[in-house]
Structure formats: structure tokens, C-alpha cells
């Protein structure tokens, strides 16, 4: 079995490893301690493992790690810190848009990329944007509320 050297930029940090050809970005990230990227289905059906690659939200289980050198990869940990939450994170806290929290890291990355493209979306546009991220707890209500509130804030990015 052949192994390949790979160097990826994750959250502006270089991460190197020797991996198998079929290693998905999700597996790579989790094996390299980016455990904030959640494994829900491994088949691109749930969106829990969403990360931002070159500005776009992508399920990391649907991308090979070897496809990602030279790309900028961001996980939820790139957003804010305990002392200074990102406005989206703050909105999720304020609206209690989090229940179990398992879909949250992926949901936040999708919302982040979406708001960067479209800073003032309608609720319908928000529902379209997050439709690849399943949440089984909330019925999406407070998630849509939270994203909308950031869009309305006008100060995004």
C-alpha cells in the first residue's frame, strides 16, 4: 500500500502527514486533531463535516486530502475565540440555535461562507443555503433566526 506525503494549510497552519490515497479530507483532519470537524455519515448526506475550502463550504468526507494541497482550508476553530466569538457564533449563542451541537461546526461553516457571498439574505435564501446541513434537534428555526440576525447586522466581515 502506497503512502503519500501531503502538506495542507488548515486554519492558516501547515499540517503534514503521510496518508493513503483514499484518505478523505475528513479523515485527515480528524487524524490530525481537528476533531471539531464532525463525522456524521461519511457519504456527503448530512453536512456535519463541512469545512470551507477556498471560500466554499464543502463536506470534507467528499474530498480527498490529496486534492487539497495549495488550498486554504478552514474549520470552525478558525472563526472566533472564547474571548471574542465570531458574530455568527455569537448569534448562535444568543438565539440558542444549538441543541446537541453536533451539526453546529458544519452549519457555522456553511453559514459563514454563505454570508460572505451574500451578506443580507432573506430567510428563504438562508433555508436554501443550509439545506445540505442536516440538523435533527432544532427544526432549523433558531438557526435561521441566528443567521438572519447576523445578515441584518450589516457589519458582517
Amino acid at each position: 500500500m502506497e503512502l503519500y506525503e501531503v502538506d495542507l494549510m488548515v486554519n492558516n497552519r501547515a499540517v503534514s502527514a503521510r496518508i493513503k490515497a483514499e484518505t478523505t479530507l475528513l479523515d485527515f483532519l480528524r487524524e490530525n486533531n481537528f476533531i471539531e470537524v464532525k463525522r456524521g455519515c461519511s457519504k456527503g448526506d448530512c453536512g456535519a463535516c463541512t469545512v470551507i475550502i477556498d471560500g466554499r463550504p464543502v463536506p470534507s468526507c467528499m474530498t480527498l486530502a490529496l486534492q487539497c494541497p495549495g488550498k486554504k482550508i478552514y474549520t470552525v476553530k478558525s472563526l472566533g475565540s472564547w474571548d471574542k466569538l465570531h458574530p455568527l457564533q455569537q448569534a448562535f449563542v444568543d438565539h440558542e440555535a444549538v441543541q446537541c451541537g453536533f451539526c453546529t461546526p458544519g452549519m457555522l461553516m456553511t453559514a459563514k461562507a454563505f454570508l460572505s457571498d451574500q451578506p443580507h439574505p432573506s430567510r428563504e435564501e438562508i433555508r436554501e443555503a443550509i439545506s445540505g446541513n442536516l440538523c435533527r434537534c432544532t427544526g432549523y428555526q433558531k438557526i435561521v433566526d441566528a443567521i438572519e440576525s447576523v445578515g441584518k447586522g450589516g457589519e458582517y466581515e
Binding site: E36, K77, L79, S81, W82, L85, F92, E96, V98, G101
Partner: peptide, 21 residues
């Protein structure tokens, strides 16, 4: 009241450790 969650901040930061982690 709308009292705010106990673990939501850690959940949005990606800090919470789940079983598979």
C-alpha cells in the same frame, strides 16, 4: 427567562468533545 446555554459557547467554538473524539 431566556437564560442562555451552559455549553453553547463551547459548542459553537468546536470545543466540545463528543464520543467519537
Amino acid at each position: 427567562k431566556r437564560i442562555g446555554g451552559l455549553d453553547e459557547k463551547d459548542k459553537v467554538l468546536g470545543n466540545v468533545i463528543f464520543a467519537e473524539d
